[in-house]
Design a binder for these strands. Sequence first.
DNA 1: CCAGACTGCTCAATCGATCAAGCAAATTTA
DNA 2: TAAATTTGCTTGATCGATTGAGCAGTCTGG
Lengths: 132, 132
Amino acid sequence: MASDNRRIKKKRQSTPFEGQPSELAGVLADLRTAKGLSLRQVEEATDKAVSNAYLSQLENGKIKKPSPNVLHHLAATYAVPYEALMEKAGYLLPAEPGGKRRQRLAAFAIDDLTAEEEEELLKYLAFLRSRS
Amino acid sequence: MASDNRRIKKKRQSTPFEGQPSELAGVLADLRTAKGLSLRQVEEATDKAVSNAYLSQLENGKIKKPSPNVLHHLAATYAVPYEALMEKAGYLLPAEPGGKRRQRLAAFAIDDLTAEEEEELLKYLAFLRSRS
DNA sequence: CCAGACTGCTCAATCGATCAAGCAAATTTA
DNA sequence: TAAATTTGCTTGATCGATTGAGCAGTCTGG
């Protein structure tokens, strides 16, 4: 199963990580045929969450970005990691091979603070800013 | 600003990880006010990717699930990790299965602080914790 | 006190994701 | 071979996300 028509001009700023146009399409099609499932069988497997009509369009790249919800159901059905599909769809960055973690947090973790303490902290923050 | 009306019957199977109804709403509102930005300023900051009208509805929980695209822009604007917002929106599982200590999004951002100020703030945070 | 500049917010209209139906080509069954 | 099934696919309608425009309230300077 080849992949071909790639001529679309995407001018509109759309999604997070503009990845391969529809690499996803091929992947989905392959996964399904690999499992030997028909469109309707998948529809059934996803408990009607993904219609056969929609899946068809998806596999044929006639559709841009399926919702994370749809991807979640498909991932479950094909027994592949959800994040993988999310990535193919361009919702997530290509997972670090080396298992690199965490991005720089610009915000703090303050879960353990009480409401009062948090307020104090904010007050202090305001104070810091007021000095500028 | 409290949070209240939560009586809606969610029968329709909707998104991946059904998380807190609209915890996201509050977080977004907090992040913005923390940064001292107006709705329109954010709209501008996101390069028109998120309208002030929409953000308003989002912060007031009048809207369910913003697209990952929107979250991506907001994350950038508020300088918080994209994945964090994705999680709040229910698109991703609560990160790190291994590391128990989860980082929560602070209700404020500190991008505008100088390195020195940030350090002072952290020191103060440590102080608060030491009192517990 | 008024103009102008902001602010948050609502509401009608738009746009894309998603579905219900139905259609033609295979395949199967009898 | 004809009826019944099944399969991939297209199309019209629906629904929710997102926006454009406008409205009332606040605040500042003249």
